[in-house]
Design a protein around this nucleic acid. Sequence first.
DNA 1: ACTCTGGAACAATTC
DNA 2: TTGAATTGTTCCAGA
Length: 931
Amino acid sequence: MQDTFCLSVASKFSFGAATGKERGLQLLTSLAADMKSAEEDAYSYTPNVSLSLPLGMGSPCLATQYHTLQSSPVISVSSCHQTGYSSDNHAASGYYLPHSLRPNGAPALESPRIEITAYSQYPEDEVEESSSEDHIVKRGVNIVTLTLPNAEGYRDPSCLSPASSISSRSCNSEASSYESGFYNYDNSPQNSPWQSPCVSPRGSSMLLSCPHASGPAGSPHNSPSTSPQIGAVAEEGWPAQPRGSRPNSPSYSGGGGGGGGSGGSMGKRKYSFNGTSYHQTPCSPNQSATPSPHGSPRVSITDDNWLANTNQYTNSAIVAAINALTTDGVVDMGEGIPVKTRKTMLDHSASMSLKVEPGGEELGPDGELCHEDYPSRLALKKESYCGGFLDVPQHPYSWSKPKPYLSPSLPALDWQLPSCSGPYNLQIEVQPKSHHRAHYETEGSRGAVKALSGGHPVVQLYGYMESEPLTLQLFIGTADDRLLRPHAFYQVHRITGKTVSTASHEVMQSNTKILEIPLLPENNMRAIIDCAGILKLRNSDIELRKGETDIGRKNTRVRLVFRVHINQPNGRTVSLQATSNPIECSQRSAQELPLVEKQSMDSCPATGGKMILLNGLNFLPESKVVFVEKAQDGHHLWETEAKVDKDSIKSNALVVEIPPYRNQRISSSVQVNFYVCNGKRKRSQSQRFTYLPPNVPIIKTEPHDEYDSLGTVGLSMHSTPYYSQPRLTPIMPVADPEACLVGGYPSCPPRHAAMPSSPPSSSPTLHDLSPVAFSKCLPNSPTHAAAPPGPMVAPPFQDNPGHPNLAHPSSPDNNSSLGLLHSQGSPNHLNSPGRHNYHPIYTNSSPSSSPASHPSTPVGPAESPFVQAYSPVGSAQAGGRSPSLLPEDASPPSMAITVKQEPQELDQMYLDDVNEIIRNDLSSISVHTHA
DNA sequence: ACTCTGGAACAATTC
DNA sequence: TTGAATTGTTCCAGA
């Protein structure tokens, strides 16, 4: 079909050309329009595709991320699940290890800390508990460890950022503080979330094993390691910056530019306090974090905040800590509160923040802890503290409700979770626009992320029939080819105001700010995300964090990651995750880089000659479209410039003649990539394209219904942009279809009829990836446009997902991609073994799928195993996928984000590195897991 | 008086 | 090593 369409199109275009540009343009326009609509429609259906998890690991569905893991070995984590939250959790008290000990047994924080025996209330406790205070009681006494500010912290040389940048500030410091302690752990595989139980909470025992459990302090678990996030962490309360160091360096402005900054801003940053305060801060950070009102963490330190914070923290970190303990550990109460408001309130908050720390900090294991409490606490706090001040609209939904899932047992943020499990299916009905200029702390908010349609993203949970409201979590995730993880350089920012209809509040978890939004039965478990903005943290601040291996430069793409934790009657918790299409957050990139959102076809015979319509942004008359085939090692095997129909060029559409493949006689399909180039460094993400053997009937992916309907001239667009990284070629395979199934459940039930329509976009975007999953997951997958046989769908930014229609339930949306390791080579990655190396995938479902599945989440009958995939491993595989269709397993596509491109060699290096790491880690991990 | 935005200046990096 | 090109961050100004 597609071909057909294409042809027709082509003819039209040519016709147009002959006749006149206008005509062609009109066509394009109409096409574009259609496409768009299609996209939107598509959204509704976000595919969750799953990923292809490598190995069959998890069910594809499970993982949402694009990234695949390639090889990831699966590890089951069974035990872990704890559940938690609820009382059961408490039980867990046991879980909590003395802070000092890490799950591993390793000593906990290095930094000196103060241990306090708390009553129940500790933050930690709180954290876990969350909900009601009752819980608190339950907890029993825990010891809270406070990290002393200075301690280690802050700046070990070693700690200093891996990243190179020297720059700046200390912000990190905050982070570092945590990190210092934690981080390391985190990095360690063990710590890694993976281990953790994931899924369900209830599991109690897990805790022990799980890092999280361990006390707040200790546990690094959180995924921190993995994720970069760290930086953020600090955020909240912390002024990270101050901490220190940075100030000195003139440069602190860091890598980036700094430019302007130096001027005025600098001042802001500097904060004399820093020094002192900081130290303390550390302590507080956690605590404070919470408070942090602003969304932005750290930094923000505007003087104001800073001062306030500083004072409080500074002096008495300890005191504060103590206070904190007593009070709440919660995170910020403030969240709800407008920053400014808070300032005034700071005082109050102070206590709050402090509290947090203990618990929070660590959050341990997850920072989760913090959250939990959160709601309830917030409520409390607000009332008490804020009461009068804020008028923050009260949510219809009261946060005070205990949230079970919040418990520590919740999966770390860098875990890869499925979008569907059993009867449940979490979908992004309306995808965010591909561009959203994030704001710096030094700027005012730049508003909430918007949808293409002009509205806002919409997320809906299907299959949930209970009357109990749930909490939808939102955080900013990466959009590179690696596994999805919290983005270190971006944080979600809560937007409030008259125009915001959705209630929300912020919670910090492992350095990552999470926006919690109520999912109410009365709203059909659907939420309009009009309360989420994106905050950009200075690269220099984040790169200095301990353990942070990612670099910020050119790492400007993010994805919105939505999670929901559903408690099951059996005490377990099912955690689902849906990831949006990638969003370019850089002003410049958004304005200058060409972006391919959709392509009318994903494949064609090796003879080429067909016309393909590309829909996207920033196309110029001089834009070129280059088809490239790379070897596994990244070397170019073939590269050719396609003919662009100059007459049809529009800023948002290009018609290109597909060049013949270098070898017209291929016996199997060949995966190549193409990109739009506006200049030297202005290239779009690589999109995937498959050359089919001449004799093979085109398998095209099926057009989406939607698309078809769209009528775009017959061309059906796929939104599939695959982002592949340049280097990586491969693409990937898909996840098992089966995967989708969840334990006994098919994994994703069809949506309710109601499903929205739009959808397409969702997904995946990503970079990389792939598509992968999609196909598989969806029974129907074919529909995806993208999907070429093998590889599939990669969703590109927007759409990919496109599959709108798919009724498939499963589509894991987006996310699932597989990530791949390879890609990117960012050295960084290499560095952090822990982090990225393996990512667990949280699957629930399909037992089959995951090799090791464990029941992690028990969903219903079936438990979902939690699988951990190690990406690295995969990497090996990944490394190469050859273009041809890969079987499912495989590798994910690569697409990486821009982040840095490294020499090809890196790939190999990376792989090797990863493998090694994995090997090392596995052993330990497995232990934990099972424990 | 603000918030939200779009632009752009300025400066650190990178090429 | 130098200068141009990039890119990050901060400012400004208008709606």
